[in-house]
């Protein structure tokens, strides 16, 4: 049961985040916010394969939420409870989605975007191909960084020159990425991509019972906050 969520299809996985986002808009007091968060926490314990990754995500989201708590308190009339309600609401809004995004397989996602959601085939296929450049970008970034360091223009401890450094690295990476895009485009057209307005897909995009149950669970979790608010 704890690895089921890994086997669900990417759209089903992402639906958890979508419903948590939608549900969070109904939260307007602290009790509802805490209850909604509690339900997600229980679901995480029951259904997620590990606890470290969700906790790390929770940490990141909580840091963001703290700034919301403080700023809402300061700009919203110094109402402590309202401020905390907003903070917890942000966690409900963001945390489930940020955890689930970590389990999404980009290749499978592309299959489902094209076949289940019927997005334009060539755009999806090009996107799936571009995702493969991620690792290459990482290696290129490392080499660009090394070249700059050994040429006397590497990172320093000065924040302003580091800003320029980051800008120049980003630019160099984009140049390389766009040049690669030109080569990739030639190679893809040589394999018939130019005319592939209708194309088949090597892997199916099935909806199993598990996928449907995942979406139902996602909707149920998301409905907790609206239901509580309406009942209250």
């Amino acid at each position: 049961m704890r690895s089921a969520v890994l086997r669900a299809n990417p759209l089903a996985q992402l639906s958890i985040g979508m419903f948590s986002l939608l549900g969070s808009f109904w939260i307007d007091d602290l009790d509802v916010a805490l209850l909604a968060l509690g339900v997600y926490a229980v679901a995480a314990v029951l259904f997620l394969p590990g606890w470290k990754y969700p906790l790390v995500c929770l940490g990141f989201t909580s840091i963001a939420a703290v700034t919301i708590v403080y700023s809402t308190w300061r700009l919203g009339g110094h109402d402590v409870e309202e401020a905390f309600a907003n903070g917890v609401r942000i966690v409900v809004l963001a945390w489930p989605g940020s955890v689930m995004a970590g389990y999404v397989d980009p290749t499978r996602l592309a299959d489902y975007l094209a076949q289940s959601l019927r997005l334009p085939a060539r755009l999806v296929a090009a996107f799936a191909a571009a995702m493969q450049r991620f690792t290459g970008f990482g290696l290129a970034w490392e080499q660009l960084d090394q070249v700059r360091r050994v040429r006397g223009v590497g990172r320093t401890r000065n924040p302003i020159s580091n800003g320029r450094y980051a800008a120049s690295m980003t630019f160099a990476l984009l140049v390389q990425a766009m040049r690669g895009a030109s080569h990739a485009s030639i190679a893809m057209d040589a394999r018939g991509f130019a005319t592939a307005h209708r194309r088949t897909w090597a892997e199916p995009a099935d909806w199993t019972r598990l996928d449907v149950m995942t979406v139902v669970l996602a909707a149920a979790l998301g409905a907790v906050a609206p239901l509580l608010t309406v009942l209250a």
Partner: peptide
């Protein structure tokens, strides 16, 4: 959209996705 349009668009999206991600870490 020509192939080069689609490939460049998606390549830019991946590159900027990395930038967005890194900026998110710096942003806090």
């Amino acid at each position: 959209y020509r192939t080069i349009d689609l490939v460049s668009l998606t390549t830019l999206a991946v590159a900027f996705g990395v930038v967005f991600w890194a900026w998110g870490k710096l942003y806090e």
